[in-house]
Amino acid sequence: MAQITVKVNGKEHTSEVEPRLLLSHYLRDVLNLTGTHIGCDTSSCGSCTIHMDGMAVKSCSILAVQADGSEVTTIEGLATNGQLHPVQEGFKECHGLQCGFCTTGMIMSAADFLNQNPDPTEAEIRHALEGNFCRCTGYHNIVRSVQWAANAMSEGVIE
C-alpha cells in the first residue's frame, strides 16, 4: 500500500491505496465521485476525462499513486460557486447529451480545449474531441454546445 495526498475539487484527501489502483477507480470508489465514468480499457473512449494539474487527462490510464501531490478537478468540481461552467451550460442549451454517460468526460475535454483555444472553428472543435466517444448524439449538438460555450465565454455572458 502507498499513501497519497491528492487535492480533489479543492479538498485535500490523504489515502492508503494499492499502487495498481487506477485514478478513475480511486475517484469513484474511494472518494465516491462517480461522475467520472469508465467506458473502456484501452485509453480510447475519454469518458473518464478529468483535469489534473490543469490538463485534461484520462484517469483510467493513470494510477492513483501517480496523482500523489496533484490537483484534480472532476465534473463534480467544475462548477464554481454554484455557477455552472459555460461548457456545462452549453451542453444543456444545445442538447449536447442524451444518455449522459460520455458527457462528463466530454465536458472536461471541451473545457480544457476552450482554455487553450477560446475562439475555435468547427473543425478545430471536432479535432479537439477526437479522444472522446459519444454514441448517442452523432456529435452534431456537442459541437454546437462547445460553440455556444465559446461564445458565452467570449461575450462574458457567463463568468
Binding site: R28, I38, Q88, G100, T103
Partner: peptide, 23 residues
C-alpha cells in the same frame, strides 16, 4: 417546443446515477 431537458442537470454535473455508481 424544444424544451430543454429536465434530466440534463444531473448529467452535466456528474450526478447521474448509473448502476456501477451504486454501492
Amino acid at each position: 417546443q424544444s424544451v430543454k431537458r429536465i434530466e440534463d442537470k444531473r448529467f452535466i454535473t456528474g450526478k447521474g446515477r448509473y448502476t456501477d455508481d451504486i454501492k
